[in-house]
Amino acid sequence: MAEEKEGGLVFHPLDQFIVKPLFGDGPVHWYTVTNLTLWMAIALLAIVAVFVLGSRGRAVIPTRLQSIGELIYGFIYKMVEDVCGKDGVKYFPYIMTLFLFILFSNYLALIPMSYSPTSMIAVTAVLGFGVFFAVTILGFVKNGPAFLGLFWMSDAPAVLRPIIAVIEVISYFVRPVSHSIRLAGNIMAGHAVLKVFAGFAALTLVSPVAVFGIVAIYGLEVLVCGIQAYVFTILTCVYLKDALHPAH
């Protein structure tokens, strides 16, 4: 994507996503500590700071940090309870883990010079397919063959039922793909656009526009980061609900 423009102006909007070893210059093995590892660790530490250190006092009247943790807790807990019902509540820690990881990765990636793990399709694919397999296995374990009733619309006209079943099966298997690409695509596109605007900012002529563009896109990204984390989580809840109560 890097292109020569107007004599030496070069931008590489995708270079920010390159995985580099943190120590040394060797090849990236599966165990190599990379910039991605670093930013995942930072996200983890930030979550620990808010949720473990923040609630350290176990105060009935919360401190600010504890209050933030409680707000997020209440928000996700209510979401799980509303979407999945009472029996979905025991899966709340898993959903909370997903949400916090995505939310903190997204927002930490907005720090200049940082790295965004959630823009990597491999990362979101693991998340998306992980949810897909977990939910599918859970559906069969909980409901047995009755889980297949998810695809069989018993209240549709009998002629249409097989056709709807085929469509439902296809849409079911597309779920993890859309689930993961939605997140990675949003984050990657946002960061790439920011980088393109940053590249234009080097040109005197258009730099005011470019800088304004960076500010605007950054503002948009702040929204997108929260919304994508929310969307990923609520879709996970919806899929979980399908697994727990396959009957329409």
Partner: peptide, 18 residues
């Protein structure tokens, strides 16, 4: 593989901490 490995490490750690 690197991304998946570190993601799993992070998620599992995070899950247990949470």
């Amino acid at each position: 593989p690197n991304q998946i490995f570190w993601l799993l490490v992070t998620l599992i750690t995070l899950y247990f901490v949470m």
